[in-house]
């Protein structure tokens, strides 16, 4: 009769354990201020201590009233930037990933240059180069586009140039799929995760961008972070906390919704 083997538990990988610990510690450090912001935003008078005099929703209501026009503007701006990123970034990423041409390395490097340039410097350069475009907001759009484009292109070049994707396309071609069908039925499903990661990056970067916006905004075209800054330096601390909370409540659900749209595949990109 065969003796039963003692059950063996898989020994945890120490590298994985250290990695998981760091990930959790980092996440907690990042998330720790949020409960404090919630407490301050719902305290009647923070100078008397937290929740002194009871909980109030007044600051949140006032805060939302103050920032909502700017929040909707930022959202519209982010969507416009996303469309422009797709129109400009997708062909650029395709070109860099798929074609070997003189200057390919230079183009690839140029698309990454805005990451290395401080937002203030980029904004000032745009103002000096195209002063006439500032008034109608075109410069603001250009600044956001330049700021987000490297992230969009960078997220797509690697998956688009992956040999496996090229082999899948080759198989699809032999099965009768022309260029458009290969793009729709092979390339897009295969890079969906990367595309969604790029979309989330563009939307959140644009909505949270301050440096470029601060130099390029106009009174009628003011992004949310600029208004947040105004509120911080002029208003009460409770009000600043409340509009910070409004900002988070505005941005986080949008990010989660985008990730859910992608079937939670962003992490796989």
């Amino acid at each position: 009769m065969a003796a039963s083997l003692p059950s063996q538990k898989a020994r945890p990988d120490p590298v994985q354990q250290v990695g998981a610990t760091f990930a959790w510690v980092t996440a907690l450090i990042c998330l720790a201020p949020i409960p404090l912001v919630v407490i301050v935003a719902t305290t009647r008078n923070w100078a008397d201590g937290f929740w002194a005099g009871g909980i109030t929703m007044r600051w949140l209501a006032e805060g939302w009233q103050q920032i909502s026009p700017y929040a909707w503007f930022s959202l519209r701006l982010a969507v416009l930037i996303l469309v422009l990123d797709v129109l400009v970034g997708l062909p650029t990423a395709w070109l860099i990933a798929r074609y070997d041409f003189p200057g390919r390395q230079l183009l690839s490097a140029l698309t990454m240059v805005p990451i290395a340039i401080p937002g203030i410097a980029m904004a000032l350069a745009l103002i000096l180069a195209y002063p006439a475009m500032r008034g109608d907001g075109r410069l603001l759009v250009a600044g956001h586009l330049l700021y987000t484009l490297p992230f969009f292109v960078g997220a797509l070049v690697a998956p688009l140039s992956h040999p496996r994707l090229r082999e899948l396309e080759a198989v699809a071609a032999t099965l009768g799929a022309g260029t458009v069908k290969r793009l729709l039925f092979v390339v897009l499903p295969q890079v969906r995760g990367a595309l969604l990661a790029a979309t989330i990056m563009v939307v959140t970067l644009s909505m949270g961008e301050f440096n470029v916006s601060f130099f390029l905004f106009t009174p009628s075209l003011k992004p949310l972070p600029v208004e947040l800054y105004s509120a911080y330096i002029t208003g009460r601390v409770e009000q600043a906390a409340a509009i910070t909370l409004c900002f988070l409540l505005f941005v986080i659900p949008a990010t989660i919704a985008l990730e859910r749209l992608g079937g939670g595949r962003v992490g796989q990109a």
Partner: peptide
């Protein structure tokens, strides 16, 4: 003729199955 017009069945070494 481009590949999509040749009616050739190609099975690469990796099989290249569509995992979606």
């Amino acid at each position: 003729l481009p590949p999509e017009k040749r009616r050739i069945g190609w099975v690469p070494q990796s099989y290249a199955l569509f995992d979606h």
